[in-house]
Structures are given as C-alpha cells and as structure tokens.
C-alpha cells in the first residue's frame, strides 16, 4: 500500500504540468481558431485557413508533436536561430503542436455556430444601422459563444486528454511520471489505473465547470440535463 501512496503523490505532483499545458493550449488554440474563422470570411485568406484546418485535422496529434519536437526543431533556421531557446523546451513544443492541432478543431466548431445564426438577425442589425463591430459584439459573438459552448466543451475535454501525448517527448506530465514509475517498479497495471483515475478526476471537474457555465449562459434557464 505504501507503493500506491507514494505513486499517487507523485502523480498528483505532476498534475500542475498537465493543467498548465492544457490551459495554455486551450488559450492558444481558441485565439488561433478565432483568427482562422475570421480568415475564412475573406476570400484572400480563405485558402490558407482551409489548408491549415485540413492538415491539422487530417493527421494524428502524436505525429504533429514529433514533427514539431524533432522535425522542425532540427531545421537549420530554427536550430541556429533566435527561436531555439523556445524550441529547445519539450513543453513549448507540446504546447505549439497542441495549439495548432486543436485550433483546427475549434475553428470548425465556431464556424458551425456562426452558420447557425439566422441571416434575418444580421439583416435586422444592418437595418438598425449597426456597424460591423457593434454587430459582432452585440449580436454575433454572444450567440456564437452560447451555440458553440457544448461542442467547444467537448473539444476542451479532448484537449485535456490529449495533453498525455506530451509524455512522448520527455515531458513529465501525469502520464510521463506514470511511465517513469513503471519503468522503475515494473508495476504496470496499478500505476496506470491510478493515472487513469487522476485524468478521470480532471475531466469530471472540467465537465462540471462547463455545465455550470452553460447553464448560466442559457437565457431561458432551460439548458438540457
């Protein structure tokens, strides 16, 4: 039982790494996703946004992480350029790959929500003489937020799980520590089950927070469930 105790403690001590990676990636990915959606509105930048989404949704995140960490970092301009101090850090590379990958998924969620806003509302806003920014601030953004929230929340849960892939490039997150403990103790099953419990706790907490936000954003107070 002593082994399980120290292992649990070790895993819990790695939770901040996982949470930090998750929060930073969620922030980065959401910002990039907003930019991608904006780019899709203009004809000139549409192609680039589409290509971005195509590549990052069409390949595994694990491969993208390896590509950033080993592939891109080994290129001359990166290896010998001013960006190296950042690319040198595995946590940064994991963050960069996750930001790029998840931005593509979140952009699709936002685009879907944007398409769900009735055209009539926009026309009405135009008729009222609202400018572009007022329209975005008062009509579009609040509705996109509310409409996108369930799917966006799903993406966030996926992201917290995806942070475990960072362990494959030497990041000592919860999964990384679990693998290290196993390597030194050869006790595979119980350590992985403990790690699974830690993740289950994190995703459950996130889901609870999301549900609360969802409920508070619902104007009629009748959100499902």
């Amino acid at each position: 039982m002593d082994f399980l105790g120290t292992t649990s403690l070790g895993l819990l001590r790695a939770v901040p790494v996982t949470v930090l990676l998750f929060l930073a990636s969620a922030l980065g990915a959401s910002l990039v996703a907003a930019v991608l959606v904006a780019m899709q509105q203009a004809r000139v930048t549409q192609g680039l946004a589409r290509a971005w989404i195509f590549v990052f949704r069409g390949t595994p995140l694990l491969l993208q992480i390896f590509m950033v960490y080993y592939g891109i970092a080994a290129l001359g301009p990166i290896r010998h350029g001013f960006l190296w101090p950042a690319f040198r850090e595995p946590l940064f590379c994991a963050w960069l790959a996750m930001t790029c990958c998840c931005s593509a998924y979140i952009a699709e969620v936002l685009r879907g929500a944007l398409g769900a806003i009735p055209v009539g509302q926009i026309e009405a806003a135009l008729a009222c003489g609202m400018g572009r920014w007022t329209r975005l601030r008062l009509i579009v953004a609040p509705q996109v937020l509310r409409l996108a929230l369930p799917a966006y929340g799903n993406e966030l849960v996926m992201m917290i799980k995806s942070t475990s892939l960072a362990s494959s490039i030497t990041v000592l997150d919860v999964t990384g520590v679990a693998q290290q403990v196993i390597a030194h103790s050869y006790r595979t099953l119980d350590v992985f089950c403990l790690a699974a419990a830690v993740y289950l706790g994190m995703t459950a907490a996130l889901t609870a927070v999301l549900r609360r936000i969802e409920r508070s954003l619902d104007p009629l107070g009748s959100a499902p469930r």
Binding site: Y70, A73, A74, R79, T170, G176, A183
Partner: peptide
C-alpha cells in the same frame, strides 16, 4: 534526467543539443 523511449529519439536530442 530526460527519459527516451527509443535510442533514436535520444540521439536526435543529443545531436541538436537539447
């Protein structure tokens, strides 16, 4: 200590100075 799953990955990081 940095841990690697395979030798090849470790070699790449040794060569690029990580």
């Amino acid at each position: 200590i940095r841990y690697y799953r395979t030798m090849g990955e470790r070699d790449l990081d040794l060569l690029n100075g990580r």
